[in-house]
Design a protein around this nucleic acid. Sequence first.
DNA 1: TCAAAAGTGTTGCTTGTACACCCATGT
DNA 2: ACATGGGTGTACAAGCAACACTTTTGA
Lengths: 226, 226
Amino acid sequence: MKSSDDAKMAKKMHPMPFTRIEVVVLSIIDSRLHVLLAKRAEAPYAGKWALPGGVVRIDLDGSLESAAKRVVAERLGMELPDMEQLCAVGGPKRDPRAAWALSIVFRALVRIDKISANPGKRIKSLTWCPVSEAATDRSLAFDHADLIERAVKTTRAQTNAMKLPAGLLEKQFTLSDLQTTCEQILELKLDKSSFRRKLDSRDLVVPVAGATKGGAFRPAQLYRLT
Amino acid sequence: MKSSDDAKMAKKMHPMPFTRIEVVVLSIIDSRLHVLLAKRAEAPYAGKWALPGGVVRIDLDGSLESAAKRVVAERLGMELPDMEQLCAVGGPKRDPRAAWALSIVFRALVRIDKISANPGKRIKSLTWCPVSEAATDRSLAFDHADLIERAVKTTRAQTNAMKLPAGLLEKQFTLSDLQTTCEQILELKLDKSSFRRKLDSRDLVVPVAGATKGGAFRPAQLYRLT
DNA sequence: TCAAAAGTGTTGCTTGTACACCCATGT
DNA sequence: ACATGGGTGTACAAGCAACACTTTTGA
């Protein structure tokens, strides 16, 4: 028994955690940050709101990132680019289905007009909920309110550090669009002049040659991410 | 079959990833950042250097953090406080023992004179390796060189952001000690005056009343973390 | 009195904030 | 012309880096 198969034996003898992906999809609706919630079709927490998520499938997934992509496709019937891994949480009490549940949490930022989410497997319906409510809503399934809170906190920190929210922007955008988006994430007003100087001192955006956009006022220069 | 047991069935039918904890223990030796490596006693990679790690045990562990604590105790025969979760990586090719391996990576900072690591289960011997070598050493087992590189990068970013490396400090320390430690993590010289102004503008340390420490020169005020 | 390290001060530059002001456009 | 949002400039404050300087100790 003191063989090089110890590890393999250990693996076979020790049951592994019930391992899932959960996805925090954030978007801006009516000037406020919202999170996408799915109404669960099945127990546990049937009828309750939860983050869209699913089991890691070792027969299908090549990595955690591709597992997240597959889960989004199955649950929401769409693709989400730029998903970012936030953290992993695990413990014996997280999910009544399993003795021990592990979740790898991803976050995506996406424009509401670019998304075409439809309730997929095991999901009765979808809704967008303001993050301020979701993060404190004790009626959410599992520990998902905590996960949402962490995701929002991380997103705000990144925006403060001038990591631009690519998923919330059009391919081309005006600097005012960009600033407004950041302000809505942070829920605070930014100074136009400061914001722009930061942008170009760090070479975060480049003007798109000759392109502008009209209204009932002066047209704005369009930019894209570098 | 369209019952509330679908999820449970899915769980039973889908094998779960081989789920492990890996620990990047960093310390400063001879003024340079080193990482603790363990020589593997068994296949795969028998005789190769790897990060200390172990399987998540759902019968023993109450959380990922306590799993990390247990793994350190088993492999190194000691306790490590302040372990921080860095990331999770997973995929089918990471570990020949399993069809799909998932690792949750933790990092610890520890004073070399406070540590009493002894080779534990499945470990032949331990060594400290300069991080600059370890991060690029293609002979390390699994993808551990990558994990080390990520851990070091994160640690440097945190130090730059003035997150003090608690584990690398005595309970009481001089400001010069603290500065030297940060310099050794970052591998660059810092300005004394700037460093100190940052410390007290952010209230990161407090002087320990009346305590000082002698040498062949002027004694220094002792401080502790807030 | 000298070396060594502690600790403080000065100067100039960079960055951030607040706010004012001009510019281009459609109505 | 004027309202509207785009875009730029200025003035002040805060922060940081480099460097010089003073202080306190044991030898």
